[in-house]
Design a protein around this nucleic acid. Structure first.
Length: 812
RNA sequence: GCGAGAGUGGUGGAAUGGUAGACACGCUAGAUUUAGGAUCUAGUGCCUCAGGGCGUGCGGGUUCAAAUCCCGCCUCUCGCACCA
């Protein structure tokens, strides 16, 4: 009585709690260190401790866990750690609102989230946890910074930087988004500010970062990074300016040099002041001032009419000695190339617009195919044949690029050059809740790094962290005033903190030995586990985090810390899970889905199963919790497989071995390829089949099939599989079983449904032996009563036979 | 504007040249239950004169055979955007 009673009251949460306790007691998920097994480092992006784990965390993490479990069952020793990316603006903003310290807020959130993470029932190795705001972690941020400084990778520079007026801090170029240049965090339009800031020379690695040949990453990420790095090949060309000297331009089209009819400098170009003639000085000054005042939004609006001012000066075109007028115009940006361009209106849309506006000659120098010799009505940016270009006339433009460049090189007026859109990584932040930059300013010695033995430079515990635009740490005299490590004289500390992307650029190394104090990670552990074999996380990190991560590892390699080039061998991205309204989940929209209510009602296996089932994992999509019922019902039905009562159905019990093998094959292939939705579907289908044949299969065969099923269910629904394993007499734990193999021969059916088509249209389905001959199949087809009417009065012209599949009769 | 991805029932999706709609959600009917927002069974692309006909964004093509390959277009999503 109590038996059946218990089954009727399906209570997934207590079932799951029971097994989670058992797993914890028995240390089931302690990392396997058995070096006779091949290693597998499975990494999922670490969460930001915002307070509550939401479905946006479950969506990437639980399928990653399924994959890690699969690898474990396949005989790998698997390392699957987790941690918290704990520094950053949200902690500060939340803390400001509540009047408590960011540390307090962050750590209490971490406490909550640790509990919630355990509810997932994932095989995380919680002993390796890393919290990036802990001194034992950020000490190594500082250590890296000093190493980077010594190597010349980190440098300080006064330059116009992107500044968020709301968050009161500078931002990396990557954190400024959209055409209207808004702050990635708060959406406020950013402004330019002149500040001395620390930067990392990521541009030194631009070329290497374009090489993806040894990693298996999604093409999408590769494309995004390539576009971001923005490599352009072309030439730097010197134009002489009388009474000034040479000024360089960068162009991707040296073949159009003879068509340069004017010259444009960015308003910020250092030469502007000197070259401007007295008559033009007033106009130029007014334009420069206006450009400086203009917001970035207006400045970068591509649809805006071209404006500019003549400087009164002329530049000499090295190709033909022509003196062309020099303008300043805000469509030329100081931040790209050399900040000056040769303008070729016939072959560049922007230059064309400008020339029209200012009545400048538009000279065709590249003849489009079938050109009639007339002036061009609109700019032509494609390839063609060089014309009006002296000795180069008749040269195809592709070849012309090289020939013109070589010719310039001979005359020392230019050279082949490559330009990148990528800028160096701006590290400094004027906020409290981050890693202090370990640098000291001394009047005598200049900029001095904090010696290694003095690290970490501790972030003061009780600080005034209200953002004022100045670094909060500057207001703390105990922190700010210090001694110079080299001359012992009075000195001051750098009061900026590091961009939090610093923290996430190397955290997976720290997981290996989170408490190691002789270096950022224990090299012995590194030897055992690095690099990461499988990384999973959101596509939204394609540019920021994932580019920095690659850069960091390359610098670490050059520092002799690691001996490989890429941090993560394989990367797979999940799509974004949206709110029920199809919008991005956000607290302000109020469409954040809290997994807790679903876990309480359906259990975590149901939630993780549902998240895998709703669609292709790399596509994401809006949340619709209704579908969860289906997954929950399925899991409940799975448990009834172990019950004694038999049920009936129409399915054929003799299919059992074939279908079991087919299931194993399907899941093996799906998991390899990160296709979770079709895996769950196959498991449901198999469950339905097992229920239909239950009680009509011989005991041993049934048990074997059930054990196979439960074994392959384990990575997907770890709690339910464990329960079923125990119920069917398996020895603890199902998660220590090997992933079963399958036999191709057993998957092949003896009977097939032969499809009969007439002119490609389905006309009949006939049961036939799988190895039926073409002749026999054709006879069957021609005899079919459903087929015959479609043949009447027509001549059989041809038949096509696909073995084991179909016959197509072609008539006419 | 440039680059990438996508368009299939009422819904999420499956099928990567060979049975379109697997697996679910929802819906309909029935069974069971004191009750049910539980469970089970059957049905469920559209039209239909019940023979069939039509059907994967639109138009064309290749093929014995196309959701799938090719050409042209439309729509949506994402990224970049005066990058010389």
């Amino acid at each position: 009585m109590s038996e059946t009673r218990q089954r009727k009251t399906y209570d997934p949460t207590s079932l799951e709690r029971r097994w989670q306790e058992r797993w914890a007691e028995t240390g089931l998920y302690k990392t396997d260190e058995d070096e006779s097994k091949p290693k597998h480092y499975a990494l999922t992006m670490l969460p930001y401790p915002s307070g509550d784990l939401h479905v946006g965390h479950w969506y990437p993490m639980t399928p990653s866990d399924t994959r890690a479990r699969f690898m474990r069952m396949n005989g790998y020793r698997v390392f699957f750690p987790i941690g918290f990316d704990a520094f950053g603006l949200p902690a500060e903003n939340a803390a400001i609102q509540r009047g408590i310290q960011p540390r307090e807020w962050t750590y209490s959130n971490i406490e909550r989230m640790r509990v919630q993470l355990r509810q997932m029932g994932a095989m995380f190795d919680f002993d390796s946890e890393v919290v990036t705001c802990a001194p034992e972690y950020y000490r190594w941020n500082q250590w890296f910074f000093v190493k980077f400084f010594e190597k010349g990778i980190a440098y300080r520079e006064e330059a116009p930087v992107d500044w968020c007026p709301k968050d009161n801090t500078t931002l990396a170029r990557e954190q400024v988004i959209g055409p209207d240049r808004r702050c990635e965090r708060c959406g406020t339009p950013v402004i330019k500010k002149n500040l001395a800031q620390w930067l990392f020379r990521i541009t030194d690695y631009a070329e290497e970062l374009l090489d993806y040949s040894n990693i298996d990453w999604p093409e999408r990420v590769e494309t995004l990074q390539r576009n971001w790095i923005g490599r352009s090949e072309g030439a730097e060309i010197e134009f002489q300016i009388e009474n000034y000297g040479p000024v360089e331009v960068f162009t991707t089209r040296p073949d159009t040099l003879f068509g340069a009819t004017f010259f444009v400098m960015s308003p910020e170009h250092p030469a502007v002041e000197q070259i401007t003639t007295p008559e033009q000085a007033e106009d130029v000054r007014a334009y420069v001032e206006r450009a400086a005042r203009m917001s970035e939004i207006d400045r970068t609006d591509a649809t805006r009419e071209k404006t500019g001012v003549f400087t009164g000066a002329f530049a000499s075109n090295p190709a033909n000695g022509e003196e062309i007028p020099i303008f300043i115009a805000d469509y030329v940006l100081m931040g790209y190339g050399t900040g000056a361009i040769m303008a070729v209106p016939a072959h560049d849309e922007r230059d064309f617009d400008f020339a029209r506006e200012y009545g400048i000659e538009i000279r065709t120098v590249i003849a489009p195919p079938h050109w009639d010799g007339e002036d061009l009505e609109e700019p032509y940016a494609g390839g063609g044949t060089m014309v009006n270009s002296d000795g180069f006339d008749g040269t195809p433009s592709a070849e012309g690029k090289e020939r013109v460049t070589a010719w310039l090189e001979e005359r020392s007026a230019g050279r082949a050059a490559v330009t990148y859109r990528l800028h160096d990584w701006l590290i400094s932040r004027q906020r409290y809740w981050g890693t202090p930059i370990p640098m000291i300013f001394c009047d005598e010695c200049g900029i001095v790094a904090v010696p290694e033995e003095d690290l970490p430079v501790l972030l003061p515990e009780e600080a005034e962290f209200m953002p004022t635009g100045e670094s909060p740490l500057k207001l703390d005299p105990d922190f700010y005033n210090t001694e110079c490590p080299s001359c012992d004289g009075p000195a001051t500390r750098e009061t900026d903190t590091m961009d939090t992307f610093m923290d996430s650029s190397w955290y997976w190394y720290r997981y290996l030995s989170p408490h190691y104090d002789e270096g950022p990670f224990d090299p012995v552990r590194g030897e055992k586990w690095l690099p990461v074999d499988q990384y999973t996380g959101g596509i939204e990190h394609a540019i920021l985090h994932l580019l920095y991560a690659r850069f960091f590892t390359k610098v670490m390699r050059d520092l002799g810390l690691v001996d490989f080039d890429e941090p993560m061998t394989r990367l797979r991205n999940q799509g974004t899970i949206l709110g029920p309204d199809g919008q991005k989940m956000s607290k302000s929209r109020g469409n954040v889905v809290n997994p807790q209510e679903y876990v309480d009602r359906f259990g975590s296996d149901a939630l993780r199963g549902f998240l895998m089932f709703i669609g292709p994992w790399n596509e994401g999509g809006p949340w619709d919790g209704k579908g969860m019922e289906g997954v929950s019902r399925w899991l409940r039905r799975v448990l009834t497989l172990a019950a004694d009562e038999s049920s009936g159905g129409e399915a054929d019990p003799s299919e059992l071995p074939r279908r079991t093998n087919r299931l194993i094959k399907k899941l093996t292939e799906d998991l390899e390829a990160f296709r979770f939705n079709t895996s769950i579907a196959a498991l449901m289908e198999h469950t339905n089949y097992l229920l239909a044949i239950k009680g009509r299969v011989e005991e041993d065969a049934w048990h074997g099939a059930l054990r196979s099923f439960v074994t392959v269910l384990a990575p997907f629904a770890p709690h339910h599989a464990e329960e079923m394993w125990a119920e069917s007499g398996g020895e603890y734990s199902v998660h220590e079983q090997s992933w079963p193999g399958y036999e191709e021969a057993l998957i092949r059916a003896e009977e097939i449904t032969l499809i009969v088509q007439v002119n490609g249209k389905l006309r009949d389905r006939i049961e036939a032996p799988a190895d039926i001959s073409e002749e026999a199949a054709k006879v069957l087809a021609l005899e079919s009563a459903r087929v015959r009417p479609h043949l009447e009065g027509k001549e059989l012209r041809k038949s096509v036979y696909v073995p084991g599949r179909l016959v197509n009769l072609v008539v006419g």
